[in-house]
Simulated scan of single mutants.
Amino acid sequence: MPETLRGSELGDHLPRYAGVIAESSRIAEGVISGYVRGAVSEAEGGHVLDVGCGSGVYLRAASARPGSTGTGLDLQPAAVELAQRNLRRWSLDDRFGVRQGDVREAELDGPYDVILLLNNIYYFAPEERPDLFRTLRGALREGGRLVLVSMFHDSNPTALNLDLILACTQGCYALTTPARLEPELREAGFRRIRTDQLVSGQSLYAIQAG
């Protein structure tokens, strides 16, 4: 960090720490898993895509809906291996698969009833987000929903700490706000947009767009 603050190049930390990031992001797992279970249970069908699936824990949450199936997609091979191991350990590998790839380039099998975009919107540049949302909308079936969860920009210590980490890391971008994302989602064709605060006093929010 001292070198970064003095103006050196940002660190290429994501590949090195992919497994650690996937595990540490589970600090909010209980809250987010409950939200995912609710969103998948309310959807018209149970076919799920988890973009940036990390450890696979939210595919596990989606599996609470009887008969649900789906795919996890992650850019980092270490995260893919971790998710595959976990799905086997949870006896869910017959319902959910995981593959390595970049959502901006991968062919998305679909259509899906629910697409999860959890704790990773800050990996996409602001100018990329409208195209990302259009890509995901195109992979949803009629009536499907995008579920986006993130820590958002705020003055609380948790958000400020994450923003500092993002500022020091290649391929990461500053935390945004729900108010900035809503017009980008509408530009991509989403019409029904709902925002829920997941933790009182924290800027951890979920956005459902359909």
Rank of each mutant, 00 (worst) to 15 (best):
E3M: 12
T4S: 08
L14T: 11
P15K: 12
Y17V: 15
V20R: 15
V20H: 14
V20I: 09
I21Y: 12
I21H: 09
A22G: 15
E23Y: 07
R26E: 15
I27H: 13
E29S: 15
G30F: 01
V36Q: 02
R37V: 06
A39M: 02
A39T: 05
G45T: 01
G46T: 09
G46P: 04
G56K: 03
L59C: 03
L59T: 03
G72T: 04
Q76A: 15
P77F: 10
A79Q: 04
L82F: 01
R85F: 02
R88T: 00
R89I: 00
S91M: 05
S91V: 04
L92Q: 07
L92T: 05
D94V: 08
R99D: 00
Q100V: 14
G101R: 06
R104C: 10
E105F: 12
D109W: 01
D109Q: 09
Y112N: 14
I115V: 14
Y122R: 06
Y123A: 10
A125D: 06
P126Y: 00
P130K: 03
F133T: 01
L136H: 07
L140N: 07
L140H: 07
R141S: 07
G144N: 04
L146A: 11
F152E: 13
P157R: 04
L160S: 07
L160T: 10
N161A: 14
L164P: 02
A167W: 10
A167I: 04
C168P: 02
Q170H: 07
Q170G: 06
G171T: 05
Y173L: 01
L175A: 07
L175I: 05
E182T: 15
E184T: 03
E184L: 11
L185G: 02
L185A: 03
F190D: 03
R192C: 01
R192A: 06
I193H: 04
Q197R: 15
V199F: 07
S200K: 14
Q202F: 15
I207E: 04
G210P: 07
